[in-house]
Design a binder for these strands. Structure first.
Length: 348
DNA sequence: TCTGGGGTCCTAGGACCC
DNA sequence: TCTGGGGTCCTAGGACCC
């Protein structure tokens, strides 16, 4: 039997959730991000399709968005609301036949052996809209990579299929950054090697790519360019590797004591997150971003896995003291690497 | 484009050990 | 001590994704 992977990607998810609870915003340019104040530092998390027509997208600085569309509605991020909406939507998807892997707030993979994956896809779209008011796009592929790219071609609210049979024809002439895992930096490095399209990347010898991108990433890039992906759809939740918080100041801070106080507060916040989630840290990493966007990190290993506020805070302060250099600071962060839980004993 | 906040994974160099 | 070669762990930084 054939085996298909569907990628379900909610359309303009965060903006859609906001419009659902504020119906008067429907049809208007809506921009969600930061504290919702476009005169303060922050970037766009999601813009509604109406706002995207003004050149506003994810990652656009809020101040730029305001300039491009002064009449847009700016809203702050409300994580709990999106988590709740996401959970409700995933319940609908989980009713489909097959294995569901939740891959984020607004996306999931479904592995199915159904003969007609398009039917599953359109049934999902209908159920999701009926029961949650959310639209989604569905990509169908022979593997996760193909399905993921296919869903981006299906937006908004469409269904699209990309298989090994059509890969070369659909992807061959596209720029390398159309691929998952190729962003601006890698696209530029590839361009410097004379590689600008997916088709060209697919023909580059592994050794050439390994020399530039490393032994794992290099050959992986070529596999991605060929549409190859052997990863499986897994329903189990992945164990978290780290937990952290960071904060960008509206005004840069040049005073050491004030920066250190912010680090201590973040450390206590992270510690209480760990407590709430039953997690333990093994290492505490402090991040400082200076005004010229120069970022430095420093970690401190803990003697034993811990979640106590005093221990996390003390470690963060030690890391800060070892890291800090006088300068104008725009961001600080505290991140904890987590104890890896022992896998259950194998029974052979 | 004066550039968020939450994460994940990979790389490369040095320490350390045999 | 004019000093190899390999494996593994730790750490800071980088790239990417949503």
């Amino acid at each position: 039997v054939s085996h298909y992977v569907l990628h379900i990607d909610f359309d303009e998810f965060i903006a859609a959730v906001e419009v659902l609870r504020r119906p008067e915003l429907r049809g208007r340019p809506v921009v969600v991000g930061g504290a919702g104040d476009p005169t303060r530092r922050g970037v766009v998390a999601t813009a509604s399709y109406e706002a995207r027509r003004f050149g506003i997208g994810s990652g656009t600085p809020l101040r730029t968005a305001l300039r491009r569309c002064p009449e847009a509605v700016f809203l702050p991020m409300d994580r709990p609301a999106y988590e709740e909406a996401s959970a409700r939507a995933m319940i609908v998807l989980a009713e489909a036949p097959g294995v569901l892997e939740v891959a984020g707030w607004d996306e999931a993979f479904l592995a199915t052996k159904h003969e007609h994956p398009e039917e599953i896809g359109s049934a999902l779209q209908r159920d999701l809209l009926e029961r949650t008011g959310l639209n989604c796009s569905v990509g169908i592929g022979d593997n996760k990579l193909q399905a993921k790219l296919a869903s981006s071609f299906a937006k908004p609210a469409g269904i699209s299929r990309l298989g090994s049979d059509t890969w070369d024809e659909v992807m061959g002439t596209r720029p390398t950054d159309a691929l998952w895992g190729v962003g601006r930096k890698r696209a530029r490095r590839l361009a410097a090697m004379g590689i600008t399209t997916v088709g060209e990347l697919a023909e580059v010898p592994d050794a050439t790519l390994a020399a530039t991108f490393g032994p794992t990433t290099g050959p992986w890039l070529r596999r991605v360019a060929r549409g190859e992906d052997h990863s499986t759809v897994v329903s189990a939740r992945r164990l978290p590797r780290s937990r952290g918080r960071e904060k960008t100041f509206d005004q840069n801070i040049a005073e050491r004591g004030a920066v250190r106080t912010e680090v201590s507060m973040l450390a206590r916040d992270v510690a209480s997150d760990l407590r709430d989630q039953g997690l333990e840290a093994t290492r505490v990493i402090v991040k400082i971003r200076y005004a010229p966007f120069l970022t430095r990190t420093r970690g401190v290993a803990l003697d034993r896995a811990a979640a106590e506020q005093a221990i996390i805070e003390h470690a963060a302060e030690a890391a800060f003291d070892a890291l800090y250099e006088p300068g104008s600071v725009r961001l600080v962060g505290v991140r904890c690497e987590l104890k890896r839980v022992e896998p259950p004993p194998r029974i052979d």
